[in-house]
Simulated scan of single mutants.
Amino acid sequence: MFERFTRRARHAVVDAQEVARELGHREVGDDHLLLALLHAGGVAADVLIAAGADPARLREQVAHQRGPDADTDALRALGIDLDTVRRRAEEVFGPGALDRPGPRRRGRLRRRLLEEGPLSGHLPFTRPAKKALEESLRAALDLRHDYIGTEHLLLGLLRSPDARAARALAATGVDLDLARARTAVVQALRRSA
């Protein structure tokens, strides 16, 4: 299936891993794909921005959806800001000073994890992210396209209204249902042709 992806769509999928890493997440979700689509440019980014998507607000929402946890809330209630603690610890001890180490492993794999850190290398995709990729193929087939572009990835993401990407859009005021998104994508494709 990946061979059908356009160069821009492939970059978006790969960049989703970097987005997850930057946010300190250990797996790539459909919400990370959404953020990568916004940065990739192209039809999907155009449709999202025309619908009112703000990349910075969406990024904050994605970070917020996956955290903070109960411990963070408890510390915040005591007046302790973990972002400030993390920033100061990294100033003194270096980047990633407070990251949890991966599970204890032996031999070469353990050495590689220690050298590369817990968030380097390939991050696994969540089930909803994999589903969105599958749905992007269906979206391309529905439109009778023999390729999968960023526009198809967007349509694939929007086919799951309960997924994190859709919730992040809704939470930031972007009302982009599948029917309207499909219409916007088709219109944008016609304009670019």
Rank of each mutant, 00 (worst) to 15 (best):
T84V: 15
F93C: 09
L37T: 01
P55F: 05
D30R: 04
T72Q: 06
D46F: 04
R59M: 10
E91R: 13
G94F: 04
A89Y: 02
R86A: 08
R87L: 11
R59E: 15
G79I: 09
P68Q: 10
D71E: 14
Q61P: 03
L78S: 05
L37M: 11
A74H: 12
A63G: 12
R104Q: 11
P101Q: 14
A89G: 08
R88N: 11
T72L: 02
L48P: 06
A53C: 07
E60T: 11
R104A: 13
L78V: 05
H64F: 14
G41D: 04
A50C: 08
L58C: 03
A53P: 07
P103E: 13
D81G: 03
R66D: 01
R66W: 08
L38E: 00
Q61A: 14
A56Y: 14
A89M: 12
P103G: 06
A77I: 03
H32K: 08
D31A: 13
G94V: 02
L58F: 01
A56D: 15
P103Y: 05
P55Q: 02
D54A: 10
G94T: 03
D31I: 00
L38F: 06
G96M: 01
A97L: 07
A51H: 08
E90T: 07
V43R: 00
A53R: 08
A36Y: 01
V92H: 06
A97G: 02
L78W: 06
L37N: 06
A44E: 00
A63V: 09
A53N: 00
D69W: 01
G94A: 10
E91T: 11
L38D: 02
R104P: 03
D71W: 10
G52M: 09
A53L: 06
E90K: 03
E60H: 11
A51C: 10
A40G: 02
L35H: 04
D31Q: 11
L37E: 00
F93S: 02
Q61N: 01
G52I: 08
L37W: 03
R76M: 10
R57W: 00
L33S: 00
A70G: 04
D69R: 11
D46S: 14
A50I: 08
D30I: 02
A45P: 04
E90L: 01
V92I: 13
V47T: 03
R76S: 13
D81C: 03
F93V: 03
L33Q: 05
D31W: 00
G102N: 04
R59K: 13
V85H: 08
T84R: 15
E60R: 14
L34Q: 01
I49P: 02
I80A: 11
L75F: 10
G79N: 06
A36F: 01
P95R: 14
L78T: 02
I80Q: 05
G52Y: 06
